[in-house]
């Protein structure tokens, strides 16, 4: 076994254990939120820990795509492009999970699967943008050009997000803002007791670790794909 395999395996185990701990805390250990009344709402509130964890992963995924894109254009090293595409792919999968879990939480809490709330709408658009990013990659031939173009698009994709969010926010919002500020229109929000705070913290760390572990594997996949390409070129 190479040192890298050992490091990756260690990261896998740590991330796996952390996720299991986070799941135990979210499902069993943490008490129901005190201010929620209906039993459905109380149970569904536990989705929140998973939702936030996946949200951290999606956010990390898209942020790292931006970083990889910028660094690729500056350094022209293939590894940054590999990091960017790997991260975008993970980001899209986790963003799908965020939308799905959010929807399943909204149904018992807001009594609707979907509302055109700024955060929901922005999340959906971000999801679409990164699907477009992956489609762009699929439609380009030539590794160098693909890396260049998708890096440019990766920069635009990330920078348009705050503007999109701002533009959609100037409609009334009902998404609960848990962390800061008071939003009188928000429904289904809950106060953060020490238990909830800790569980949330642990699950966000655990999911960030899971992201790191998956990234390590996904980047290796990309490197192996390049190795295949190089071997084929040697044969020709």
């Amino acid at each position: 076994m190479k040192a890298r395999d050992i490091a990756m395996l260690t990261l896998d185990v740590i991330a796996g254990v952390a996720v299991l701990i986070a799941l135990y805390m979210a499902l069993v250990w943490v008490p129901d939120a005190a201010n929620l009344i209906s039993p459905d709402e109380k149970v569904a509130q536990h989705i929140f820990y998973l939702h936030m964890g996946m949200n951290v992963d999606a956010g990390l995924g898209f942020l790292v795509t931006l970083i990889g894109s910028v660094l690729y254009l500056l350094t022209r090293r293939r590894i940054w492009d590999m990091i960017a595409v790997s991260s975008a792919e993970l980001g899209v999968v986790f963003a799908t999970a965020v939308l799905a879990t959010g929807s399943l939480w909204a149904r018992p809490t807001w009594n609707t699967w979907w509302t055109w709330d700024p955060r929901l709408t922005t999340a959906a658009i971000v999801w679409l943008i990164y699907i477009a990013y992956l489609m762009l990659r699929g439609a380009l031939e030539g590794a160098e050009q693909r890396a260049r173009f998708s890096a440019v698009y990766g920069i635009f994709a990330f920078l348009s997000v705050p503007l999109t969010f701002m533009s959609i926010r100037w409609w009334r919002t009902i998404h609960p803002t848990v962390f800061s500020g008071s939003n009188p229109g928000a429904q289904g929000g809950f106060s953060l007791g020490p238990h909830i705070r800790l569980t949330l913290f642990v699950s966000m760390i655990a999911f960030a670790l899971m992201y790191a572990a998956l990234m390590a594997h996904r980047v290796r996949l990309e490197q192996d794909a390049q190795a295949v390409q190089e071997l084929k070129e040697q044969l020709l």
Partner: peptide
Amino acid sequence: MLPILLFPVILP
């Protein structure tokens, strides 16, 4: 490809 790339970015 163009509308798929452009529309989500141009939304604001």
